[in-house]
Write a protein that binds this DNA or RNA. Structure first.
Lengths: 282, 282
DNA sequence: GTGAGCTCAG
DNA sequence: CTGAGCTCAC
């Protein structure tokens, strides 16, 4: 499908198109993936979008400066790309079949302007891609920055969007929410990534009106999107964390039909430590 | 073919073999290759020995410590390996169909014991593999060390071998001898790699009785074994140097039938900056 | 330009 | 364990 984009509504659409001027949403597929290097994972990403044809793919940890972002390869695959990167760390991108409007790539927190945020709009669908700071260690400065960044993001959302709007917030939140969401809850309770202060921040997103679309559909545990490279055979032993999310306002949660985690992408050459989380909408 | 090895002469050969106890040399193929990393070039090397089936392959710049040398892969390809490596730099190895006897891996010069030398014997054929220091810059300490190392190698040869013996000395000498042997002789005259002092040292090897087997067979220029990575399209433009050699005593030069440089190996994935130099013997 | 190995971060 | 980017050497 193609989303009805702003430019189309503005009049460039020819009269034979069914949904001209309509606000009726169309089926779409959305995915998020912490690539852990756009350049290293480019073959996996091109293969994946070739096979799965998502309408929108949110990418985190692209670890590539804008001048080196592989725009051509992405465009040859039939996608538009918006991105903001920096040297070595962080970096986010949104690939989409239809171009993104109203693009924003900055969310400065405490004067720190890391490449962790991209937002935009495709037709009536508003999208935010977030790469939440990892936080290093509970109680550390980096941990406090993580909480501040989450608070700032939520503040930005409440100030700029309405719970009744069509909004998706996807990305790597670096927080597991419940005992179902990581392989050793007792071992990590109170540690970074599984700390009550982080979880309370995420609850704030829910309280505002965002829904964890994966959890709406799937109630089982042991469903992870991240496996630490440092744990020997961690993927095979499924010692992972569910820390990547696709959140949606009520309207989006409502029209979400199915959700799945692509464990196959981990069988490819040079897998990332994360994998693809996918939501399909009616 | 299989060379008549020491162990065979010692009695393990069955009586149907033609050359039992004989000193008559058999046809063999010998090659030298500066791998510039044994680990990175392993696919190229395995492919090459699989296709070309050399009896002996001399390798330089293996850049791998002995504990990490890919012995298994080499043995699975049907070769014995002797090697001496160090971290990051230098490193030499000899792969051979028949095992090498009387292996020596040390040639300490001025107290510096870098991994630049392996010698051994297969039957009556004595072999030396040398990775001569690059020399940095004419007149530098490293340049003087290069000359000292060459002098020491020649002294070692004259002290331990006889010009009438069957001796091969192969490797990367990091010296071009004449204007035919590099792409810009006037540009590099007197520079490291094309300096009269280095050339005089190599002449010493010839004066003792070693023959540059390539040059015995091929009189043309523009025949190179090394192309500096840093020169844009240097290989395509054939801006190279002939600095790798297979030298032999008179008896070996005599029975050398043909010599060639394998430019095809440079078309493979991740080519080295050097390529294979090959001599076939009757 | 390329490889090794180091530091930093995850 | 993995990636980036740095230094070093060639």
């Amino acid at each position: 499908m193609e989303l009805i984009s702003h430019t189309l509504v503005m009049g460039r659409l020819n009269s034979s198109t069914a949904f001209y001027g309509s606000k009726v949403p169309q089926a779409m597929k959305v995915a998020t993936f912490n690539a852990n290097s756009m350049r290293v994972r480019l073959p996996i990403i091109l293969d994946w979008i070739g096979r799965e044809a998502p309408d929108i793919l949110f990418l985190q940890e692209t670890k590539v400066q804008d001048k080196d972002f592989p725009v051509n390869a992405v465009e040859e695959a039939g996608y538009h790309a918006v991105f903001r990167g920096q040297k070595s760390y962080n970096g986010v991108a949104i690939l989409s079949k239809s171009p993104l409007d109203d693009v924003k790539t900055q969310l400065s927190v405490e004067g720190v302007d890391e490449a962790r945020f991209v937002s935009g709009r495709i037709g009536d669908i508003h999208v935010i891609n977030a790469y939440v700071p990892q936080g290093f260690e509970a109680g550390s400065d980096k941990f406090r920055f993580k909480l501040a960044w989450l608070e700032h993001l939520l503040g930005y959302i409440t100030a700029n969007y309405d719970p009744s709007s069509q909004l998706l917030v996807a990305g790597d939140f670096n927080v597991a929410l419940t005992d179902m969401d990581l392989y050793d809850p007792d071992g990590f309770r109170g540690e970074v990534g599984f700390h009550p202060d982080e979880q309370a921040m995420i609850e704030g997103f829910f309280n505002w009106g965002l829904v964890d679309i994966f959890r709406k559909h799937i109630r089982e545990g042991n469903q992870y999107t991240f496996w630490d490279y440092r744990i020997p055979s961690g993927f095979k032993r499924n010692m992972g964390w569910r820390i990547d999310y696709i959140l949606g306002t009520a309207s989006q949660a409502e029209r979400s039909r199915s959700v799945w985690i692509d464990r196959e992408a981990r069988a490819m050459e040079k897998p990332s430590d994360h994998t693809f989380l996918v939501v399909e909408f009616d």
